[in-house]
Amino acid sequence: MQEEPWANIHLSDAPPEAHFRFDYLGRERVDSPFANGLGEVSAVSFWFSTDYLEQHGPRQTRKLLMALAAPLPFASGNAGLAFSGSLDVAANIRQVRRDCLRYPGLEVLRLSMTSLRIGTRVRGPSWLTFLGAPLLSQLGGAAQLGSRLNTPSTTVQAVEATSAVVTLGDWPATGDSEHDEPLSGYRELARALEPWTLWGEGESILGLEPEAARRWERRFLD
């Protein structure tokens, strides 16, 4: 990971039933600031099958996620349920397009595309939303953010002076729209993060038409 000028690392369990995956995309080492707060960043993702959550429970899962995040100098990060599998496979992307609005709580991630644009912004709310510098200070700090979030199941925990994690409930939510699963905490956090949220992923990652992309990206706001 320290190789010049950058490193790309991809590790996974054996298919077809992979239980974990690790991806690291290193940004070229150049000393230039982000343009207008946006730009290419180094990014990392950890994928686990839902078996881990079901076997160990949300408390142990959260503990593991916090341990993974602890040594990382993150600007922002998200942890929650997600559609897994390669989005380059036509059958996979068709299924995700069909289901992404039904299950708004599920993440859709294509790390290689997000890391090119996100800079110091955030992708929006998730079960665990990690906020670092400079975003947390722009939100007024952990205490100020916590005072704005009134959903009883939401907690804001300061990790260090410049970072915090927002937890939305005991379990990650799918938000199944056919069963009216409430997402009040997600909606409240989305409003707080809106000015610093990365937009455009509905078209770039999912390939949705502009109106459908807008509906998906603003699923917690409109």
Rank of each mutant, 00 (worst) to 15 (best):
P5G: 05
A164C: 12
G146L: 01
S126V: 01
L53Q: 09
T50N: 04
L65P: 01
T167D: 09
E17D: 15
A142K: 09
L65M: 15
L139Y: 06
T61P: 08
G132Y: 01
G202S: 05
A79F: 10
L168Y: 10
G140I: 08
D99I: 02
T197P: 01
A82G: 13
T61R: 11
V166F: 03
I205M: 03
A43P: 05
D88Q: 12
R97D: 06
R29M: 12
Q95G: 09
T197V: 09
R59P: 00
A90D: 15
F22Y: 15
C100E: 00
S137T: 14
H56F: 14
S76A: 14
D99A: 11
A69S: 15
E17P: 00
A143S: 15
L53A: 10
G175N: 10
M113F: 03
L168M: 12
Q2D: 13
I9C: 04
Y103W: 12
S76L: 03
A142G: 09
D170W: 03
V44A: 08
T120W: 02
P210E: 08
E209T: 13
E203D: 05
L193G: 12
V165S: 06
L208Y: 05
P58T: 11
V30E: 15
Q60Y: 07
S147L: 06
L38S: 12
R98M: 11
I118E: 03
L87E: 07
T167I: 07
G200F: 03
A90W: 06
T197D: 02
A142F: 07
E188R: 07
N36C: 08
E211T: 15
N92R: 14
R121V: 00
R123A: 13
D170F: 03
L168R: 14
V122R: 01
S49W: 00
V165P: 02
T154H: 03
S184W: 03
H56W: 07
E188W: 06
G85W: 05
L149P: 05
F22N: 08
A213I: 08
S76M: 02
W199T: 11
E209D: 15
I93P: 06
L135Y: 10
L38D: 11
S45Y: 00
G105N: 10
L116H: 06
W171Q: 15
D23M: 02
E28A: 10
L193S: 11
R218Y: 02
P33W: 06
D180C: 05
D31R: 13
P33D: 10
W216S: 09
F48I: 01
D13C: 06
E178W: 10
R97H: 04
A82F: 02
G146P: 11
